[in-house]
């Protein structure tokens, strides 16, 4: 399985020069306080992970990968693990940059706020992933895009229909009070469910 993770990381490494420019712009914006950019890097890691799916699809890697020892199970396991690795790395980078920005601008560093920011960023990024991965495993990146669009559109419509029936302020209060528990528990739970669904899809899929 380690090999599959290496494959994703090599693809990302070889792709890095393409996001080098984005990274420079990001740094400029961060240090000049033009924008709060904490979210950008973890999201970029999602984009990079999706690019690994694109290469897998484009060159039919999975047809080959399933012929390897425990290939099908490892394809999925490795994809989730490389994502986690990338997410953790990018969150650490963002944290360091945020601290540096505060130091350069001689602002006091609010560590609890920073922790909250990082948690929320990682959580939303993970949410994007858990929704996208099973769809991409099922349909591939190209068709998956359409499916994801339909899904998000559907959620938006449903949300619009039911928003009046939900007491938003109580939800916010609950989140505000218990986010230290809610975020990790639901985060890990959702990732696990997504992983199980993806695995089921890949175990049955024909390449």
């Amino acid at each position: 399985m380690l090999g599959f993770i290496k494959k994703d990381l090599f693809i990302i490494k070889n792709n890095l020069k393409f996001i080098g420019l984005i990274f420079i712009v990001y740094l400029l914006m961060a240090f000049t306080n033009k924008m709060d950019v904490t979210f950008l890097l973890p999201f970029l890691s999602v984009v990079l992970m999706i690019s690994t799916f694109s290469y897998d699809d484009f060159n039919n890697w999975n047809a080959y990968a399933v012929t390897m020892p425990k290939g099908r199970a490892n394809i999925v396991k490795a994809k989730y693990l490389s994502t986690l690795i990338l997410l953790v790395i990018s969150t650490i980078i963002v944290t360091i940059i945020s601290i540096l920005v505060s130091l350069v601008n001689k602002k006091p560093i609010n560590y609890s706020e920073l922790l909250l920011m990082m948690s929320v960023t990682m959580y939303t990024t993970a949410l994007v992933l858990v929704i996208m991965y099973p769809i991409i495993f099922k349909f591939g990146v190209e068709k998956g895009r359409i499916a994801i669009f339909i899904l998000i559109f559907g959620i938006a419509i449903l949300g619009g229909l039911f928003i009046d029936y939900i007491n938003l302020s109580s939800v916010v209060k609950l989140l505000d009070k218990y986010w230290q528990i809610i975020i990790p528990v639901t985060g890990i739970g959702l990732i696990y469910i997504s992983y199980i669904i993806s695995k089921r899809i890949v175990m049955k899929k024909e390449y």
Partner: peptide, 24 residues
Amino acid sequence: LDNMFFPEILKPYEIGKIMQGIYQ
């Protein structure tokens, strides 16, 4: 396989490193 199956962005030495982590 009949069609190319290595992600084309990879390099031959990387293929070696990857396979090291796949085949015992």
